[in-house]
Amino acid sequence: EHQTACDSYWTSVHPEYWTKRHVWEWLQFCCDQYKLDTNCISFCNFNISGLQLCSMTQEEFVEAAGLCGEYLYFILQNIRTQG
């Protein structure tokens, strides 16, 4: 039997508790949902936990993801305040 992915999907966990996999799933979702250019995102810069992600500043997001960084930063802040 296969496990259902939704059990541990990033949407069901507060961002501060995300694993590295959750972070990448979220990035992929943002790219799909908001039509962000994946080429401007250095995924290696996001090989981090949710706690590390949440402690990043807006400037660090821009450094890590170029033009997309600002969008990603605000998307994350939205999730954190709603969560």
Rank of each mutant, 00 (worst) to 15 (best):
E1M: 04
E1L: 05
E1W: 11
H2P: 08
H2K: 12
H2D: 15
H2G: 12
Q3A: 04
Q3S: 09
Q3W: 06
Q3L: 11
Q3I: 10
Q3G: 10
Q3K: 10
T4R: 08
T4S: 14
T4Y: 09
A5D: 14
A5H: 12
A5E: 13
C6S: 07
D7G: 14
S12P: 04
V13P: 00
V13F: 05
V13R: 05
V13K: 05
V13M: 09
V13E: 05
H14E: 12
H14V: 05
H14I: 06
H14T: 06
H14A: 11
P15C: 02
E16L: 11
E16K: 14
Y17G: 13
Y17N: 13
Y17T: 13
W18A: 02
W18N: 02
T19H: 01
T19A: 06
T19S: 10
T19D: 07
K20D: 02
K20V: 08
K20E: 12
K20F: 01
K20R: 10
K20W: 00
K20L: 02
R21F: 05
R21L: 09
R21Y: 08
R21M: 07
R21V: 11
H22L: 04
H22G: 05
H22W: 05
H22Y: 02
H22Q: 10
V23L: 00
V23W: 04
V23E: 03
V23R: 02
W24S: 15
W24I: 03
W24M: 14
W24D: 03
E25C: 04
E25M: 04
E25G: 08
W26P: 00
W26Y: 06
W26R: 03
L27M: 02
L27K: 02
L27A: 04
Q28C: 07
Q28G: 05
Q28S: 15
F29Q: 10
F29S: 13
F29G: 02
C30T: 13
C30E: 00
C30G: 00
C31H: 09
D32I: 01
D32K: 13
D32G: 07
Q33E: 14
Q33M: 07
Y34E: 07
Y34R: 06
Y34N: 07
Y34Q: 05
Y34G: 07
K35D: 10
L36D: 05
D37L: 00
D37T: 02
D37G: 03
T38E: 13
T38V: 12
T38H: 14
N39I: 00
N39L: 06
N39T: 09
N39A: 14
C40F: 07
C40P: 06
I41M: 07
I41V: 08
I41T: 04
I41P: 00
I41D: 04
I41W: 04
I41N: 01
I41G: 03
S42M: 09
S42D: 14
F43D: 10
F43E: 10
F43N: 13
F43S: 10
F43V: 08
C44I: 13
C44T: 14
N45H: 11
N45C: 06
N45S: 13
N45K: 14
N45Q: 11
N45M: 12
F46H: 03
F46C: 01
N47Q: 11
I48Y: 04
I48S: 02
I48L: 08
S49Y: 01
G50D: 00
L51F: 11
Q52F: 03
Q52R: 10
Q52V: 07
Q52M: 05
Q52C: 03
L53T: 03
L53R: 03
L53K: 02
L53E: 02
C54G: 01
S55P: 02
S55C: 06
S55K: 11
M56Y: 06
M56V: 02
T57H: 02
T57I: 01
T57W: 06
T57D: 06
Q58C: 08
Q58A: 09
Q58D: 02
E59V: 07
E59R: 09
E59P: 08
E59C: 06
E59K: 10
E60A: 08
E60V: 03
E60N: 10
E60M: 06
E60Q: 12
F61C: 03
F61L: 03
F61E: 03
F61D: 00
F61W: 10
V62H: 04
E63L: 06
E63K: 13
A64K: 13
A65C: 12
A65Q: 03
A65P: 04
A65D: 03
G66A: 02
G66P: 12
G66H: 00
L67V: 13
C68T: 13
C68P: 13
G69Y: 01
G69F: 01
G69Q: 05
G69H: 03
G69V: 02
E70Q: 09
E70Y: 07
Y71K: 15
Y71Q: 15
Y71T: 15
Y71L: 13
L72M: 05
L72V: 01
Y73A: 01
Y73W: 11
Y73K: 00
Y73F: 09
F74M: 15
F74R: 15
F74L: 14
F74C: 14
I75F: 09
I75N: 15
I75R: 14
I75T: 15
L76P: 03
L76M: 01
L76R: 02
L76Y: 02
Q77N: 10
Q77H: 11
Q77D: 06
N78A: 07
I79N: 07
I79D: 03
R80I: 12
T81S: 12
Q82M: 08
Q82N: 14
G83H: 14
G83E: 12
